[in-house]
Amino acid sequence: MSIDTHSNAANDFPQSGMERFDFLMTRYLAGDASDPEKEELRRLTENGYEFRFQEWLDAHSDEDPAETTLPGKAREEILTNILGTTRPQAKRATMWWSWAAAVLLALGGFMWLTLRSSQTAEMNITRNDQPSRQDETQVVRGKQFLTLPDGSTVLMNEDAELTYSPASFRNGSRDVTLHGEAYFDIAHDPAKPFRVKSGTVVTRVLGTAFNVNMQENKVVVTVTRGLVEVGSTERVYAKIKPDEQITVNTRTEQYNTASVSATEETAWKDAYLVLDNIDLEKAGQLIGEHYGVKLAFSRAEVKKCRITASFMHHENLETVLTVLSKMIGATYTIDNGHVSIEGGSCD
C-alpha cells in the first residue's frame, strides 16, 4: 500500500477530506460501511477524490491471490459472448502480472496567467497579453474578465473580488475565493474539481458555467451549463442544473432552490463584450451578434489576426469599431447595418 500522500490539499479548505475518504474507503472495502457512509464515499469520489479512488485501486492491484475466482458459469458465458459460439475448454495457466505503478496527478506543463486591470479605464484593450508568472496569491478586484491558469474564465461584476493562488493551481487544486458577483466558465477537468468559496458557501464543479452572487446574508448560485454542487465545507446542500438557482442564507444555513431563467439571471454579463484571444473573424461574429450588424473584411488575411479586448460597458458600436480598426490599422464604414473593415494587417 502506498496510500500515504497528503499533498495537494488546498490552503483554504479543510484538510480532513482525504483522511475521511480513506476512513470511509477502508470501511467500504471491509464491508463495514453503512449506507450513509457509502453515499458519502460516493459523493467524495465525485467531488475531488477521484484521484484517491484511483490510488486505492492501484494499492489493491497487487494483493495476494485470494481463493475468489470467476465462477465457471460466468467464465463460459463471457467467453461465448466475446468469441461467439465457441466454448473453449479451460486451460489454467499460472501467470502473475506485475502491475505497473501508475503515476497519478502527473500534471504540470507551462502555465501562465494574464491579469488585466481595469481600475480606471472602462475599456481595456491589449493586443498581446504579457505573460506574468507570479506565485503569490492574486487578488483581483472590480469589473473585468480574466483567464485563470487552468484556462477557466471569470467575468467579474462591479465590486467583485477574487482571490486565488497560481501556485496551488499548478499543484492541481482549483480553488478560488469570491466576494461579490462573478460568472465562471470552467475548463473541464474531471480529476480536479473547481471550487468557489464565498463565505461559508462552497460551490464545486468539474466543468460548467455558472454565476455566483455573494451578498450580505446570502449566496445565490445560478447554473447556465453543466452540473454544480453547492454546500458548505461540511456538507452538500444541493446539486443544481442549468436554469436552476440555489439561494443559501449564510446566517442560518437554510437554502432553497428554484427554477429560473439563467439567461435573465446572468443578464448583467451581457453588457460585457469580451474578445478573448480570438481571431478577427470570430470577433466580427461576436460584435455582429452583440449589435445586430454584419461585418465584412476587405482583406481576407486580417480575419486571422488575433486580438484580445474587453468592453466593459454598453459601448456604442462606433467606439468598438474605432478601437478594433486602430488595432489593425484599418478603417471602417457603416452602411445600413453592414460594417466594412477596409485594409489593415496583423503586424
Binding site: 485501486l57 491471490p65 475468489t68 475466482t69 470467476l70 468469441l83 495457466a93 499460472t94 501467470m95 502480472w97
Partner: peptide, 16 residues
C-alpha cells in the same frame, strides 16, 4: 491464445 490470456489474467481483474 485468447482463452489462455483470459484464464491467466481474468482472476486478478475479477478480484479487483
Amino acid at each position: 491464445a485468447f482463452v489462455w490470456i483470459f484464464d491467466a489474467y481474468s482472476p486478478k481483474v475479477y478480484r479487483l
